[in-house]
Design a protein around this nucleic acid. Sequence first.
DNA 1: AAGCGGGCCAACCGCCCTTAA
DNA 2: ATTAAGGGCGGTTGGCCCGCT
Length: 586
Amino acid sequence: MNDNKMVPKDQVDSISTEEGSSRRSLSGDRKVLKKGPWTPSEDAILVEYVKKHGEGNWNAVQRNSMLLRSGKSCRLRWANHLRPNLKKGAFTPEEEKMIIKMHSRMGNKWAQMAARLPGRTDNEIKNYWNTRIKKLQRAGLPIYPSNMCFQDSDEYQQRRIVNCFVQQNEILQSRDLNNPDVMFDYLNSNRGDLSYSLPCPDFSMGSMICQGYESQGYMYMNPVDPVKQHWVSETVDCGYHGTIYNELPSTDQFQIESSGKIQLTFDLDYQHDPDPTIKIPEPFGGEIPGSQAFSNGNSSASRSLSRTVKLELPSLQYREPNDGSWSGFPSGPPTAVVDKHFESSPATVSLQSEWNSGLLETLLHETHALGSSKRHASEKSDSSAATTNEEVGESSGLNLYKTGWKEYYDLFSPSSSSAASTFNECMPPVVGGSFHEFPPSKATSGGYNLLFFSHHLFTNFFLLYSASHENFAGKNYSLSISAGSHGDNSLAVAEYLSTPKVEEKHISSSSDFSRTCTLLGPRWIEGPQSTKDYSLTSPLGQHFCNDHKPSLSEATFLVQGLGLESYTWDKMPHACQMPENCGISE
DNA sequence: AAGCGGGCCAACCGCCCTTAA
DNA sequence: ATTAAGGGCGGTTGGCCCGCT
């Protein structure tokens, strides 16, 4: 657009003594700064300046050039108009579709949307949306096309999962993890589709509406350098209707006990009806299966705070004008809770790889694969287990939980209890729930899976035994991980792999087995350089810092005492492939 | 032709977060 | 630990364009 075209005469020469909108007075001389539309000559100066000095330090532009513009103004002008590769012109239908879809998911996160629309700016998208929404509102039309609503309804359901995600020393949980299948689909649906920067802490989950609830949850974590982690748990009183979208769950909802366990409490209570005053019975009487490992008496030492979280109005939370129902929210607004914590402020990283190769996704991917193959092999027709997306979308919240969880439970079979406990250990627990909500599947014969969950910063081992816990009850076992040669891997990883880590456990009961087996894995090891450079922590907390890329191709995994074979990496029985971009090479 | 209003868009504003001193 | 500066982001404003009456 021609800059002169929209130059209002009364602004061209308008000046300001403000430095942008800064409330703070700037040191030094107060230059008279110009406001209003930019002229071509100003653009040229700015372009030249950026060419010479690069982006950033925008306030220096004004100091070091003839440009009498605030730093903010410069940044804005550059970002929205002058920077290269900007796409001009109307949005394409594809872009429009994407905007609508993104908005249905994330609400008014213009910058995030812009990040996913190359060449487009947040301002453009915002303007587009605002005009579009006004138009629709005037016409009394729904904001989202009906098919979009329906489609997102599924995704909505999918997002109604607990986002249990480990980001550096962070874990977050939310309720819908109880539908792992849904979660898997959700994660899968977002594969390669996420490129958020990590907004830590930034808690969100699938477009949920929080309404005056409090929740708690628990999650175990082995000692992970308690010195560096400071957990502050807060119970959030969500007295708002907020969009919680599927951004990276962050560091909420945790607390770490003196024992090193990280706990996360959850006490769900959500409302089905849009009318916030009407509550429906909670699924499983307020209990959600899967909390077995977390309901063993560990009490929270968290500091409970009540606070209101401000979140923007979500897309799918709008009531449809025609029926007043909650679009895409068949089971009603769930609740959430957040425990704030963590001092660490991880660098911004692309979520693309983090998410795609994240702990949860990997877990779910693996288990889903296992489940799929199992189902395929057995041709078992369990309608309740065969929960499709559509079914999920149409099911009530209760059914959603039941079917989803049951299926997932089955997916873990034949090692139902152990695998489930593994899952339980790794996934957020739900207070009071139990795997016994569903009958355990029949155990089959031996073998085990080593699931290697990892992304750039995290690595976690979990052994999933495809054998009944009865086979192991009363036995001691140990896990060794060793490696032959390590090639040119980093020192840290070499040491990690070449040093057998043995963790001995005694299995005394099924429940004990459920717990202990999930604790398999290398202990936290202080790195050869420094904790910052290298640290490995035990399950749910292992992380490779920096770019250490361990090679596991020659590693041997040995579980002793349980009559199981040892496996080398390449002979690992089941789906043990590491996710791409996980920072670890096979 | 003039007036009006909606659409579109650039720019500003205010708040917030991060970082460095 | 505190404070100031830099910068990001979402909301809002206001001017021009354009079609309609």
